[in-house]
Simulated assay, not measured.
Amino acid sequence: MTATANRAAAQDSIRGLALGDAFGECWFPLSLLDGSAHEEIRERRVPAAPVWHWTDDTAMALSVLRVLNGLGEIDQQVLARTFGRAFMADPGRGYGSGMHALLPVLAGHPEAWEAAPPALFEGEGSLGNGAAMRVAPLGAWFSDDLRRAAEQAARSARVTHTHPEGIAGAVAVAVAAGFAARMRRVRVPSAPELLRMIAARTPRSAVRRGLIRASELAYDTQPREAADVLGSGSRIRADDTVPFALWCATHHLSDLTEALWATAEGQGDVDTTCAIAGGVVAARTGIADVPAEWLQRCEPLPGWVEGVAG
Rank of each mutant, 00 (worst) to 15 (best):
residue 156 S to P: 03
residue 252 H to L: 01
residue 85 R to N: 14
residue 59 A to W: 02
residue 249 A to H: 02
residue 188 V to N: 07
residue 208 R to F: 00
residue 260 L to H: 04
residue 239 D to T: 00
residue 62 L to F: 10
residue 119 A to L: 10
residue 49 A to M: 00
residue 61 A to C: 12
residue 162 T to W: 15
residue 273 T to F: 09
residue 296 Q to P: 04
residue 135 V to G: 00
residue 247 W to H: 07
residue 60 M to K: 09
residue 138 L to Q: 01
residue 170 A to C: 03
residue 224 R to L: 13
residue 255 D to M: 05
residue 218 A to L: 08
residue 291 P to F: 09
residue 208 R to N: 04
residue 284 R to G: 12
residue 253 L to G: 03
residue 39 E to Q: 12
residue 177 A to W: 00
residue 295 L to A: 07
residue 260 L to V: 01
residue 31 S to F: 07
residue 200 A to Q: 05
residue 12 D to N: 14
residue 71 L to D: 15
residue 271 D to P: 02
residue 178 G to M: 06
residue 143 S to C: 13
residue 74 I to M: 12
residue 305 V to H: 14
residue 259 A to V: 02
residue 238 A to V: 08
residue 60 M to W: 03
residue 127 L to W: 11
residue 5 A to G: 09
residue 3 A to G: 13
residue 130 G to E: 02
residue 97 S to T: 03
residue 26 C to K: 00
residue 309 A to R: 00
residue 6 N to Q: 12
residue 40 E to N: 08
residue 158 R to A: 00
residue 308 V to D: 09
residue 81 R to H: 10
residue 10 A to V: 04
residue 220 D to C: 06
residue 204 R to I: 11
residue 13 S to V: 02
residue 267 Q to R: 15
residue 118 P to V: 07
residue 153 A to G: 03
residue 167 I to Q: 05
residue 151 E to R: 04
residue 25 E to L: 03
residue 89 A to W: 02
residue 46 V to W: 14
residue 70 G to M: 07
residue 17 L to G: 05
residue 89 A to D: 10
residue 238 A to W: 04
residue 232 S to H: 01
residue 258 E to G: 06
residue 4 T to K: 13
residue 103 L to S: 14
residue 27 W to F: 14
residue 310 G to V: 02
residue 269 D to P: 11
residue 129 N to I: 02
residue 186 V to E: 09
residue 88 M to P: 00
residue 181 A to K: 01
residue 191 A to R: 13
residue 269 D to W: 11
residue 46 V to I: 15
residue 1 M to G: 15
residue 23 F to I: 01
residue 29 P to Y: 12
residue 156 S to R: 09
residue 283 A to R: 07
residue 1 M to W: 12
residue 117 P to M: 14
residue 250 T to S: 15
residue 155 R to M: 08
residue 71 L to N: 12
residue 30 L to P: 01
residue 253 L to C: 08
residue 184 R to K: 15
residue 14 I to F: 08
residue 288 A to E: 12
residue 3 A to I: 09
residue 299 E to Q: 08
residue 245 A to N: 00
residue 199 A to F: 02
residue 234 S to F: 08
residue 232 S to W: 04
residue 227 A to S: 12
residue 175 V to P: 05
residue 166 G to W: 02
residue 274 C to P: 06
residue 159 V to G: 05
residue 243 P to S: 10
residue 60 M to Q: 15
residue 50 P to N: 07
residue 218 A to I: 01
residue 166 G to E: 01
residue 142 F to V: 07
residue 32 L to H: 06
residue 172 A to W: 04
residue 45 R to D: 04
residue 226 A to C: 11
residue 142 F to P: 01
residue 297 R to Y: 05
residue 46 V to L: 15
residue 223 P to A: 14
residue 67 V to Y: 00
residue 124 E to T: 04
residue 258 E to S: 12
residue 14 I to L: 12
residue 197 M to P: 08
residue 80 A to V: 08
residue 84 G to F: 13
residue 274 C to I: 11
residue 67 V to G: 11
residue 87 F to W: 07
residue 142 F to S: 05
residue 225 E to C: 14
residue 178 G to F: 07
residue 16 G to A: 12
residue 27 W to E: 14
residue 185 R to E: 05
residue 145 D to G: 14
residue 170 A to V: 03
residue 197 M to S: 15
residue 21 D to Q: 01
